[in-house]
């Protein structure tokens, strides 16, 4: 047994535990960066696959975001002469509020069915679970935005399909899921998690919200890269800082389930 239970990460060393049915199971141990990325991919792939079957997250998020756009449209139509002055706020507010729905399900479903324990039992770094979930959440949010943007175009008659707006939306969404996935993991096993997550998340998202609305507004006013670059800088700094910090602290969350 002592040979079997070597735990040094010998890269690509093949280990065959004793077989029951004379059928050895070949596993890579250790595995390095390649194995790490494969697991990140497997977790994201698993979430997307489950979503394609159930269509729980994507459908609620898109319906909610379109509803929110319609409600904002009604709210502002009566008083606002130039829709370009409210569209930046509408775009980013809808993005923030919609994302919470998806993030809540991200770990909520795993906790409810106990499958989180199975993930934690597997020889996977906790951070790989985090990045896998982050990728899946990023995909859900971006897919939802593919519906939100046309809805805004229709209701407000403002063309927001402009390069820098889309770039800022991508950067902002990355920052959003970076912090959002971490907080979703924190709040997943807490009482009243559905209402807890937005309270935790929204105050922390303020820099992204401010930078995003400012970039969108400036681009709609016809400004160029020179005027928006400091705001793009804020978004990039936000993404990098929180990716690193989340990577560092994520291990601490599930020391104990």
């Amino acid at each position: 047994m002592s040979v079997l239970l070597q735990t040094e990460p010998n890269n690509n060393a093949l280990v065959a535990p004793p077989s029951l049915e004379n059928q050895p199971v070949q596993m890579h141990t250790g595995g390095g960066v390649g194995a790490y990325l494969r697991k990140v991919g497997a977790i994201a792939d698993k979430d997307l696959r489950a979503e394609i079957r159930a269509k729980e997250v994507f459908s609620t998020m898109t319906v909610f975001s379109v509803l929110a756009v319609v409600i904002f449209g009604m709210a502002f139509d009566l008083r606002v002469a130039f829709p370009t002055s409210v569209v930046p706020g509408v775009l980013w507010a809808v993005m923030l509020f919609t994302g919470v729905l998806g993030l809540n399900r991200s770990f909520g479903a795993e906790v409810d069915r106990g499958s989180l324990a199975a993930l934690l039992l597997a020889p996977v770094d906790r951070s790989a679970i985090y990045f896998g979930k982050l990728l899946a959440n990023l995909f859900f949010l971006l897919a939802t935005q593919c519906i939100t943007l046309p809805a805004i175009l229709v209701i407000f008659n403002v063309n927001i399909f402009q390069t820098w707006i889309l770039v800022s939306l991508l950067l902002g969404t990355v920052g959003y899921v970076t912090v959002g996935t971490l907080f979703a993991a924190l709040s997943a096993s807490v009482r009243a998690r559905e209402s807890m997550l937005p309270i935790l998340l929204l105050p922390v998202m303020l820099p992204v919200f401010m930078a995003g609305t400012k970039i969108t507004g400036l681009v709609l006013d016809g400004k160029g890269l020179n005027d928006i670059q400091r705001w793009l800088g804020i978004l990039i700094a936000y993404d990098l800082i929180f990716l690193v910090v989340a990577f560092l602290v994520f291990d601490l969350i599930w020391e104990e389930l």
Binding site: L4, T7, V15, A50, A118
Partner: peptide
């Protein structure tokens, strides 16, 4: 031990620990 030791453990709990939609 690090994560590698987890390869040597199999757990069946009273929750199924499976994904419903798969």
């Amino acid at each position: 031990a690090g994560t590698e030791l987890r390869r040597y453990i199999g757990l069946v709990s009273h929750l199924p620990l499976l994904y419903d939609n798969l």
